[in-house]
């Protein structure tokens, strides 16, 4: 009887010890995983490298990714860099730079914006959101204003 009890006690203690240990591991595992920085390191990007200085000749533009929205970087004919949200304010198509018109153009309904992002022709009701552009060494850095 006492031997049987003794055995039972031991078994219970072993089981209890392992379960407590396992539970602690189960709690610590998500915590440690949580603390490891994820691949995408930032929630909101307030600035991004949109391109390199030599990449864009004057009077040309390119689309870059800004957070999860497209942006448009324009090297104007006069040699300035300008950046805008590339999302058309009409029906959200992606706008592009038209070297022949020297304007920003939306292919969907021929919306046009001038090089300050102002809507000047076609259906877009509002100007494009403009971003600030800074040159850092070779890099063209675009940030929210």
């Amino acid at each position: 009887m006492s031997l049987w009890n003794e055995q039972r006690r031991k078994l219970l203690n072993i089981l209890l010890g392992t379960s407590v240990g396992a539970t602690l591991v189960a709690i610590l595992y998500p915590i440690l995983k949580f603390m490891i920085p994820p691949e995408v390191i930032e929630a909101t990007q307030t600035s991004v490298v949109a391109g390199r200085v030599n990449e864009l000749p004057p009077n040309s533009g390119k689309i870059f990714k800004f957070g999860n929205k497209p942006g448009l970087l324009v090297h104007t004919p006069t040699g300035e860099y300008k950046a805008f949200s590339a999302v058309c304010t009409h029906l959200d198509c992606i706008v592009q730079y038209r070297p022949d018109l020297r304007l920003i153009w939306c292919a969907c309904h021929n919306g046009q914006y001038n090089l300050s992002g102002k809507n000047i022709a076609g259906p877009p009701p509002r100007p494009l959101e403009e971003y600030a552009v800074n040159i850092r060494g070779e890099e063209i850095v675009v940030s929210r204003m």
């Binding site: 219970l12 089981l15 209890l16 379960s19 407590v20 396992a22 539970t23 189960a26």
Partner: peptide, 8 residues
């Protein structure tokens, strides 16, 4: 597992 631990 949690219920098992509680039972123990």
């Amino acid at each position: 597992f949690i219920l098992f631990l509680a039972a123990l």
